[in-house]
Amino acid sequence: MTVDDEEVRHVASLARIDLEETEIERFAEQFDEILEYFEALDDVPEIETETDLTNVMRPDEVRDGLTQEEALRNAPETEDGYFKGPNVS
């Protein structure tokens, strides 16, 4: 397997992370090595599992949550009590 710069750019765009050119080159090299190491997973046997899961229920009761002010406190920008985001397109 060989990871090229184009593939790193593609994954970075899927993950919404800008990268510097030097990072792209370095990541391509490192990803190649790491993904090759992950190849060992091909030899893992299929395992029959019976997962022991229980539903966790609670009554649907009204209770206090964060105030609008608390919820907005960490936002870089707000306007009229809303989060302010960039243009959608």
Partner: peptide, 30 residues
């Protein structure tokens, strides 16, 4: 970034995350 949602999001994460975090998010996305 003054770009659209995607561009702005990508710029925020480039600025905020260190290299190991980017590496793991990208490999996980892959």
């Amino acid at each position: 970034s003054d770009g659209n949602w995607n561009e702005s999001f990508a710029a925020a994460r480039e600025a905020g995350f260190g290299e190991e975090v980017k590496r793991r998010v990208l490999l996980g996305t892959y």
